[in-house]
Design a protein around this nucleic acid. Structure first.
Length: 679
DNA sequence: TTCTCGTCCC
């Protein structure tokens, strides 16, 4: 519709109102059309402005000397239009001008507040309507209950329950569902279940609310149980069921993932939410390739991704260093104008950071109109992982200057940045600041960072003391950090203590056996190394196979150590041989003392040559244009020999090589690594 | 009218 046809000059305005007056019982059709247009998400700013100019007089005129159904219809439309555009304050202005209010108008006002997350105002409005003698009905209560659950306000929720029972509304579908959701969200699952059980009729939302209640409170088995109960009663789960279940299936068993996958596969694939939940579930269960695969399928299905899809799939791109897909998604965000959106932008920063594209991450960060503590944290950890501790420290003070309060995770980020950059004093200060200024109780993650900071700086004894002074029981990561320090600084005494604890806490983690074996290997105690290998075998511990990923043309290629399965393998090994020759000419000496096995030097050298990251890098060299940076992601820490070797490779081939291991980033360029050989 | 999905650290 063209706004020009509805000129909104003063003359026309009087005309409209006159038209209305002349036809009691019917609102002027073109005004209604205008209202509808303003309510559309596609309404232009001009339309809104035009409408605003109308609104100041229109309501007064409408109600002049009359009150009636027609005036109410128009007023309600106007209120809804403003609420839909996120302006509950303007809605309220319209509301205040209405002389006689019935419960429909009050309901609309309350809902405007709730839908715009103004929960306190919604509850205040509810109270004042009660005071005015307007009685709440089966439209009012679900809405007010939603406000209670969003605020975690169990006390007021219970106060709603009483009048609901008096009127028998608790047995109606919508109010009953609202009660279940409220009790569930507020953690009173017994009461939620009671309401659920007493409802004479239930629908899919009742079931979903019940599932959500258990899932949100960490009672995952019960959430799954309710799903199975539905199934046995022939109630078909829908996309809402999947969404409700989502909190229950992050970091969960393969079995649970399969369960949700089954629900998804039995369902019509036309609902965005279902896809979003599936993608998020894959991403949250370290199934990044599956997440990306499903995203591609979704596009093929013609379903348009929204901001939530994007925020769910980007971490998977980051995880696999799939930067070309990440960039494509970035373009999509710009095309669909999904920015500004905090979650999307924060996810973008993280994706670029994990792909080693610091500048791109920083660009997104700088362009953001509003930044929250997560944005700052993401950017700090981006610098941290790349060994740019000073920049992280710099950001931390800027964040403080802006009055943004760092939370527990922000401190994990900055501490971890300090550890990667070897900033011992800064790390100590931040730890102190966190406890003394911000009154944050240190979590295991903070201690892990502190042990890491102390340990990497060679203060192995002090790190050991830190562990002894912890108020919480140290976990395997804390001991693992200490063991790594012992490995770097050849501290066998403390290393054995740490390893001893680790073998109790995480007997299946091969990495720790390898570290301790390597400490023995460095000391030439091959008997102990052999002993450990037999202990590992005896306990059924398997070495996690080293895997390196490298992206080429939107496709992720995976290499195992000693891999010969890749179709281009012959070419890769040939090229590797040539490269090795050049490297040795340039002064490369394989560093063999960290190899686990007690074998002859030459044989050890062969083991090292075929480490997965070397294969991945050579593959990328063969298949990509000169000077294009190579990005490799590894599932374990990069070993000392590979680190030395890649420095040579970066110089010989004049390539930037960016390797991400489990701990951090290594930007290799012209024979130098960004970590300064400190990792 | 009611339910439900996303971002940072280890």
């Amino acid at each position: 519709m063209n706004l020009k046809k509805h000129t909104i000059g003063p003359i026309r305005r009087v005309g409209l109102v006159d038209l209305f007056r002349g036809r009691p019982g019917r609102p002027p059709w073109d005004l209604l059309a205008l209202t509808k247009m303003v309510a559309q998400p596609t309404a232009t700013p001009q339309a809104i402005v035009g409408w605003s100019r109308l609104k100041s007089n229109i309501i007064c005129s409408l109600y002049q000397g009359r009150s009636g159904c027609a005036s109410h219809i128009l007023a309600i439309k106007l209120m809804r239009a403003y609420a839909a555009r996120g302006k509950p304050d303007v809605t309220r202005k319209v509301f205040d001008k209405i002389p006689e209010r019935n419960n429909v108008i009050c309901n609309v006002m309350i809902r405007s507040y709730v839908n715009n997350h103004f929960y306190k105002d919604a509850i205040l409005m509810y109270k004042s309507t009660l005071a005015c003698g307007v009685t709440p009905d089966h439209y009012t209560l679900p809405c007010v209950l939603k406000a209670c659950s969003s605020m975690d306000n169990l006390r007021f929720g219970v106060q709603i329950h009483c009048p609901a029972v008096k009127k028998g509304l608790d047995l109606t579908l919508f109010t009953g569902n609202g009660l279940i959701a409220m009790y569930g969200k507020c953690g009173n699952l017994v009461e939620a279940r009671r309401v659920f059980d007493e409802m004479p009729q239930r629908d899919i939302v009742s079931w979903n609310s019940m599932v959500a209640g258990y899932a949100q409170n960490g009672r995952f088995d019960e959430a799954l149980e309710v799903c199975k109960e539905m199934d046995s009663l022939g109630v078909k789960p829908d996309s809402g069921t999947m969404a409700s279940l989502a909190p229950a299936v992050t970091n969960t068993s393969a079995e649970n993932v399969m369960f949700v996958k089954k629900i998804f596969s039995d369902m019509a694939k036309d609902e965005l939410v279902a896809w979003n939940v599936m993608i998020a579930m894959y991403a949250n269960n370290s199934m990044s390739s599956e997440a990306i695969g499903l995203y591609t399928q979704m596009e093929a299905h013609g379903i348009e991704p929204d901001a939530i899809t994007i925020a769910s799939v980007l971490p998977a791109c980051g995880d696999l260093s799939a930067v070309s897909l990440g960039k494509r998604i970035h373009e999509y965000i710009e095309i669909k104008k999904l920015r500004p959106n905090l979650s999307v932008e924060n996810a973008l920063i993280d994706m670029y950071a994990k792909c080693g594209c610091l500048q791109d991450a920083r660009k997104v960060f700088d362009e953001m109109q509003i930044k929250d503590v997560i944005s700052w944290t993401s950017m700090m950890s981006a610098y941290g992982r790349s060994g740019k501790g000073e920049q992280a420290v710099d950001l931390f003070s800027k964040m403080q200057d802006l009055g943004i309060i760092p939370d527990s995770i922000a401190f994990v980020s900055i501490l971890s940045a300090c550890s990667h950059a070897g900033l011992l004093e800064e790390g100590r200060n931040y730890y102190k600041l966190m406890i003394e200024e911000y009154k944050i109780v240190p979590r295991l993650e903070h201690s892990t960072c502190m042990v890491d900071i102390l340990g990497r700086a060679g203060k192995v004894d002090e790190a050991n003391i830190h562990i002894k002074q912890m108020s919480m029981e140290p976990n395997d990561r804390v001991w693992g950090a200490l063991l790594s320090a012992c490995h770097v600084y050849n501290n066998m005494d403390i290393g054995v203590i740490a390893a001893d604890r680790l073998f109790q806490l995480a007997p299946q983690q091969s990495g720790y056996y390898v570290l301790l074996s390597n400490i023995y290997a460095k000391a030439g105690r091959w008997k102990d190394v052999t002993l450990f290998r037999s202990i590992m075998k005896g306990r059924g511990v398997k070495k996690i196979p080293a895997v390196s990923n490298v992206e080429l043309d939107d496709h992720v290629h995976t290499f195992l150590a000693g891999d010969r399965s890749h179709p281009q393998m012959e070419e890769i090994y040939l090229e590797l041989d040539i490269l090795l020759g050049k490297m040795k000419e340039a002064g490369y000496v394989p560093k063999t003392d960290t190899a686990l096995h007690d074998v002859e030097e030459e044989e050890k050298e062969n083991h090292l040559v075929v480490h997965s990251e070397k294969l991945a890098i050579v593959f990328a060299i063969i298949n990509s244009e000169p000077r294009v940076p190579i990005r490799v992601t590894k599932n374990l820490r990069v070993c000392e020999d590979c680190h030395i070797a890649i420095k040579f490779i970066s110089k010989i081939t004049e390539r930037q090589i960016i390797v991400r291991d489990t701990n951090r980033y290594h930007h290799f360029e012209n024979g130098v690594c960004s970590c300064g050989d400190y990792w």
